[in-house]
Design a protein around this nucleic acid. Sequence first.
DNA 1: CGGTCATTTGAAATCGTTCAAAAGGAGTGG
DNA 2: CCACTCCTTTTGAACGATTTCAAATGACCG
Lengths: 259, 259
Amino acid sequence: MVHGGTTSELRAAGYDGAPNMLARRLSLHSPLLDEDREAIAALTTSRRREFEAREDIICQGQTSEDVHLIVSGWACRYKLLDDGRRQIIGFALPGDLCDLRSLSCQHMDHSVGALTATLVADVPSKKIRTLAEAKSRIAGALWRSVCVAQSIEREWIVNLGQRTGIERIGHMLCELLVRQRAIGLASGLCCNLPLIQSDLAEACGLSVVHVNRSLQDLRAQGLIELRQRKLQILDFDRLARQSLFKPDYLHLGDRDADG
Amino acid sequence: MVHGGTTSELRAAGYDGAPNMLARRLSLHSPLLDEDREAIAALTTSRRREFEAREDIICQGQTSEDVHLIVSGWACRYKLLDDGRRQIIGFALPGDLCDLRSLSCQHMDHSVGALTATLVADVPSKKIRTLAEAKSRIAGALWRSVCVAQSIEREWIVNLGQRTGIERIGHMLCELLVRQRAIGLASGLCCNLPLIQSDLAEACGLSVVHVNRSLQDLRAQGLIELRQRKLQILDFDRLARQSLFKPDYLHLGDRDADG
DNA sequence: CGGTCATTTGAAATCGTTCAAAAGGAGTGG
DNA sequence: CCACTCCTTTTGAACGATTTCAAATGACCG
């Protein structure tokens, strides 16, 4: 049990920073050769840091010479408004690069926070830049991974702008299941969901109370089961249909796109 | 008068496709040498196409070997839901590259539509890719321009998720003024706003009726004047404050960030 | 002038929030 | 095992924001 565990449980679970994790992730969207994988693995042998649940990994305004790779656990990217309102702008799962933007931009325009105990590998931007300049196939893979991240952000805009409360929650649950399946963290219709209702609220632009009632509604419709941070989708097709979820924006190929 | 004009007016206005427009835009965020500018100018000597207001430039699902540079006029990127709901996910102003993603991804996961009469330069992805591989300074500039686009999308997520109706509209108006100032399409507190209220509605995730009432509210507060597609912001600081607008996400440096 | 599209208005219904409080879990220390 | 605390989930009731539907008005164009 990794998600929701403490950092010591996490260490005990045998995570070694999985040096080829990044290569595996990038090859979800781009073909890589063995030599590329080796070069990429060499990147992530660098420093690793552990974070407790709810701890910030990097804050808005901070500068960093590193790109942050989530090795295990869940994180979220978020922005704070001056009056304290908070919007989650994306979830980062194991294998996700957090701020590839820092390859060229100086300071963070949003924060990254751990949702569970999280292991992070700090990859020096400079190393990545050098590697990308030397190997255009790797540059392409990084570019594509940014494109996918951007595509997800665009779909979140649609989620927040057009969908009703229930649709937003349903859509988010579909996305998080499909993304976990794609990286081998789930199979079938069951997955971890280490989010509390206020996380879902901040991601979907709804109040906690409304999230609670929407979840009850989805349960009453026989579409999902959710307790103890475990999500089971009982009827993926129906949930996807009524949430207007179409997995193409995740750019996962047809392999693991649905139910 | 370009925006809102017909394509023939547009031609008459003497637009030649401004071959150095892209270089100028990229150098907003990245230092470029003269040799870079020349190389970039050579890119955009390619085909140009004119579009009428409300015409689609490229549709969701289509594939394209080109990146689309908006030479003049306004366009929007949008996604359609199966039931017809439409969300605008970004506005493209002159100098904006529309789908740099197509450098590596095959088909569009969203559409681009002209809002006014628009002149578009089709730049072959391949040419860009070759140039970026040859000149790392240009690759960096393209990377940075994608980062800025992504940053704007993130702020839109915040806009839709956390701000009230009035705040969303106010924020959008601030953004569009500042962006136009940055590219020399406006100075002071006055600019074109060739959007109809339903465009604003689809960008802000509100109904047209509510947009209408929010605009009246902003007018009644003495914050803006808006008619005949001309926007004047009467009190930028107050509007920015009450809309929680902070221009940093536009990454324009301090040069043209406010008032 | 009629036609089309955009803006404005009103009234009613719905969605979603707020506030306040209760109930349910999980962990801690006695 | 109990009492205690903290955090999360759940509930109720009232309020406010936003949408919907329908109709009227205004602007522009041929």
